Simulated assay, not measured.
Amino acid sequence: MGHRRITFEPRAGAGTGREAGARTRIRARAWLVPGLALLGAFGLLAVRLWVVEPMTVVSDSMEPTVPRGSTVLIHSVGPSPDHLTAGEMVVFESPENNITTLKRVAGTAGQTLAIRDGALYVDGTRVTEPYLNPRQTDGTFFHRVTVPDGHVFVLGDNRASSIDSRNYGFVPLTAVTGTVLWPR
């Protein structure tokens, strides 16, 4: 017995096996780009909803760091409020009027703060604040306070026009809704 040879005759217009395979690869690639675009869109939506939120600043209390009209990026999942550090910019619900507010943490639980002639002192040591405009802080005074547990003391960078913890007191950590990712 010899070998029988079986031949395959493609249907009319079907092309060769090589051509059919190429068409299959092209169809697979045709779905790849829209699929990746859709996946990317869902990823961006998730980041926007649960991680990063843009916020437009409507006051001059954080000038010169964040001028009025600027957009900042808020890390809404950010570090636990228990891990906030002095110098970090935070967003919180103002104890005065429940409006979303942007300020800088000046002191955390257990720290003692005072402002003498525009200079911030934490635990008796003068704090270097390169983000301040000295012309906007000169002559500012605030009595010595100690930050209680579960709270932070916040200040605006534009001390002359900022309504902050000097006015409404300590901010509860539970009111902090995020930290500023950009600008820093």
Rank of each mutant, 00 (worst) to 15 (best):
V147H: 11
W182E: 03
L102H: 03
W182C: 00
T101D: 02
G43W: 12
E9F: 00
F170H: 14
S161D: 06
P134V: 04
M89G: 01
D157K: 02
V122Y: 12
P130F: 02
P10K: 12
A106Y: 08
R27T: 09
N158P: 12
V77K: 11
R116I: 10
R4P: 01
T128W: 07
P79N: 01
D123T: 07
W31T: 11
R48M: 06
A37Q: 05
V105S: 01
P64A: 10
S70P: 05
E129Y: 06
H151V: 10
S76D: 00
P148M: 06
D149I: 06
V66T: 09
H3A: 13
R11N: 07
K103Y: 00
L32D: 01
E63M: 07
V154R: 12
S76L: 07
R159K: 14
S94Y: 04
Y168M: 11
P10I: 11
P148E: 03
P130E: 08
R48F: 07
T16H: 05
V58R: 14
S61P: 06
R48H: 14
S165F: 11
V145R: 12
V72L: 07
M55P: 02
F153T: 11
L38S: 07
T7C: 01
R4G: 09
V58S: 13
R29K: 07
R166A: 04
S61K: 05
N167Q: 15
R126H: 09
I74E: 07
R184N: 03
P10T: 10
Y131Q: 11
F170T: 11
V47P: 02
